[in-house]
Simulated assay, not measured.
Amino acid sequence: MTETTMDTAGAVGTSTADTLWPPRSSQPILTIDQVLARMRALAPGFPPGDGVGVFHRMYLTVTELIAAKLDSGYFADPAALAVLDALFAGRYLAAVDADAAGQLPQACWRPLFELRRRPGIHPLQAALSGMNTHIEHDLPLAVLDAARQLGRDPLSFEADYQRINDLLAQVEAQVRGELLPEPDRFQVVEPLLHVIDVWSIDRAREAAWGTVLTLRGLRNAPLAYRALVAALDGSVGMVSRALLTTLS
């Protein structure tokens, strides 16, 4: 896989419409191989019981699975998908970097980082809270990031976007199976199921694609565009915080 780094300050026009796309990180855009190397290096640093670490390990599994599919013919446009996936991961890694620097992550990520060690929160809640933030907030903005980076219409990513659904569903089912308590611990299972059953990965990804379509349609309405991006940050954060409701 190519290891060249794409610079975010590439040749992009400065028309009014172009400035409406979500701002890109000032950091270089990494390749998938570089993203995986960074995530693997970070993984041992999360102590047991750390909610961010629970999400991180799950997300590393997803990223490894997608990377393995890039050269297998699974995706219609693997080169573009690789750019999208690296940009997608970069938004999570930016939250990790902000926290490590003693800064507040974006509002959508703040609940998981603030409550990462709070007693009474089950690891499955942390995994789903991170997935909610990353899918409903980061994913649609990453699609627009990739569209801007490649000079493409966001709709051109739809086919491969849908192909990722099966991969994510596979990992989510695995995570639920590994982290859900045994039925004999009913006093824990009942409230946990009440919290996690309000969230669905399929609905989250449908909502994220709806956000892509909405933002695409607002490229020439800057006030509405920016208002929706700001509202998305806060509203996704509220749901992620609700998923972290303490059980005891």
Rank of each mutant, 00 (worst) to 15 (best):
P48W: 13
D33V: 10
A146K: 02
A95C: 01
F88N: 00
D97W: 01
R205H: 06
G13K: 07
E158T: 14
A94H: 01
Q103F: 12
A9Y: 13
F113G: 04
P181C: 10
A95V: 00
V143N: 00
G49C: 02
V195Q: 07
D99Q: 06
S240G: 06
A127L: 12
G217A: 03
A208M: 06
A76T: 07
L223M: 06
P119M: 08
A208D: 03
T211R: 02
A86T: 07
L81V: 15
P191Y: 04
L70Y: 00
D145G: 01
A68D: 08
I135F: 15
T16C: 10
I29N: 09
L144E: 06
G102E: 00
G53D: 02
T245R: 03
A173F: 08
V198F: 15
A231I: 10
L168S: 01
R24N: 15
L93K: 03
R203L: 09
P47N: 05
A17Y: 13
A86E: 03
A89C: 11
L213Q: 05
A101H: 02
L139I: 05
V188I: 10
V52A: 03
S240M: 08
S26N: 04
Y225T: 12
S129F: 00
R116K: 06
M131D: 12
L218A: 05
L167E: 10
P119K: 00
R38T: 12
L232Q: 01
L20V: 13
G53M: 02
H56Y: 01
P28T: 04
T63I: 06
P181F: 07
A43I: 12
R216H: 13
V96N: 06
A68S: 07
L87T: 01
V143R: 02
V54N: 03
A37V: 15
A204Q: 04
T245S: 10
L193V: 08
Q103T: 12
D99N: 11
S129E: 00
E190V: 15
L243A: 04
V189L: 05
Y59M: 09
T4G: 14
A41R: 04
E172C: 09
S72Y: 03
G237H: 00
F75W: 07
T63Y: 02
Y74P: 08
E172T: 09
S248C: 15
P105M: 00
H194S: 15
A224R: 01
E182Y: 13
R219P: 13
G234Q: 10
R116E: 04
R216W: 14
M39R: 05
R117Y: 15
A67R: 02
T2V: 14
Y74N: 14
H134M: 11
G102C: 06
A107T: 14
N165Y: 11
